[in-house]
Structures are given as structure tokens and as C-alpha cells.
Amino acid sequence: MSSTAETTDRDAPTPDENVIKSVLSSDTARLWWWRLAFGAAVLVFWELTSGRLYSSFWFSKPSAIAQSLYESFTSGQLISDVAITLRAAVLGYGFGAVLGVVLGFVIAELRTVAKVLNPYILAVYGIPRIALAPLFIVWFGIGITSKIMLAALMTFFLTFFNTFTGVGQIDDDLVNVARVLDAGRLTILRKVVLPAASPWIIAGLRIAIPYAIVAAIVGEFIASTAGLGFRIMQSTQLFNTTGTLAGILVIMVLVMIFNLILDRLESYLLRWQPSSERPGGGTQS
């Protein structure tokens, strides 16, 4: 009779998970302490040297930035600026991501079309997209539309390219598993191609987040009447370095929050994959 798997497969990964978890958590905790210590050291150094080694007019200092942030928060302006910028970024990201994933998928699946368009796709991918920003203001006006379109453009390219590549990378042997069963084209796309490409698609979606936010802000730099980008530009023109740096800090925090959310989502969706195999991933903590 057949033997059991336990005796056969001695190399099966069955480690004592508790031991690993406790080692991991103490390591992670230590890592975070070092990270916080580094950040704090930089801030303290900045605070102490500003006004002594260099002018705090040009370089500001953490306490002044905190003060400025507190004031704009209590006046309600910070919230309203963040809301305006985020609305453009999120709407643009949504449009761009849907269009990018769908088109990337469809074009990659139509093999002949993919072959014909490949050099063009590479060429367009190579242009500095931010250089299109002024043109977008001309096309779509100084309102929110031009910012949405800019964020959508950035997101579109990153998600499109990643999806296109991911679908192109698919292992024919995996497709054959379904083909042998006489599975229809739609079934193969849904049950084999899509999950096989999902690490690429998700990586594209994650990479696009900071780009979408930056695109909205660049749009506001060029022409706008409100939003974080507008506020930063206004501060800079008034030589208010504290205001500029406060705005940059807010952007940084926003990008970090979104990255954290998508990191969690990615870990959940790709839990079937050893993290070392993830394309474009594994760089976040």
C-alpha cells in the first residue's frame, strides 16, 4: 500500500512557526527602533544647527514646520488643500488604473497586435511624461480636470506596462494544463492568465500611487487656485521655506500612508507567493 506523505517528504517545509515568529518580531522591533532613532537624530540635528550653521530663513527648522502645520490644520486650510489634491490624484489613479490594466491585458492577449505595437509602446514609455503637464493644462484648463488627467496618464502607463509585461510572461505549460481540459478561452483568461499576471499587475498598481499624487501636485504647480501643490508654489514664491517644507512633509506622509495600505493588500492578495519572487516588490518593509 501507499505510504504516507510524512515519511516520504522529509524536505517539506514544516518549521516550528512559533520560534520563527518570535525571532521575527524581536528583529522587526529592533529594526523599527533603529529607524525611529535615525529619523529623530536627523530632526534634532536639523533643529540644533538651523540658525547657527546656516540661515533658518532658507532652510527653516522642524519646530517652525510643526508650528506652521498646526496653524494650517486648525484654520482648516490643510484639510481642504489635502482634499483637493487627493481628489484629483485618486480620481486620476482610478481612471488610469482601470484603463491601464484592461488595455494592457487585452493588447497582450491579442498576440499579433502586441507584436505590431511593441516598439511604439516602448517608445511612448520612454518619454518624460511630466513634460506633458503644461500641454495638459492647455488642453484641459486650470481646473481639476487637467490634474485628474495628469494623474490618470501617469497611472495608466505604469499599470499598462506592468500588465502588458505580466501577461506576456505567462508560462505556456500552465496554460496547457487548462487547454488539455478543453477549457474555453475566457476560462483560461480568468483562471490562468489573470492570476498568473496578478503579481505584475499589483506591482504596477503600487508603483503608480506616488506617481499619481506627484502628477496632481505638478499640475497644481503649473496652474491652479488651490491644493497642496498650489500652496507649496505660493509659499516658495513668498520665500516662505517653512510653508514649502510643511507642504512637502504632508505629501511624504500621504504617499507613505497609501503605500502602507497597498503593501498590506499586496501581501494578502499574493500570499501564495514567496516574497522573493515578486516583481518590483520586496523593497518595502
Binding site: A5, T8, D9, R10, D11, A12, P13, R271, W272, Q273
Partner: peptide, 9 residues
């Protein structure tokens, strides 16, 4: 998942 199985499994 696959990466959690040995070759024999």
C-alpha cells in the same frame, strides 16, 4: 500553496 510543498508532494 505550491511553494509550501516538497517535490514528492
Amino acid at each position: 500553496f505550491r511553494h509550501e510543498l516538497s517535490g514528492g508532494m
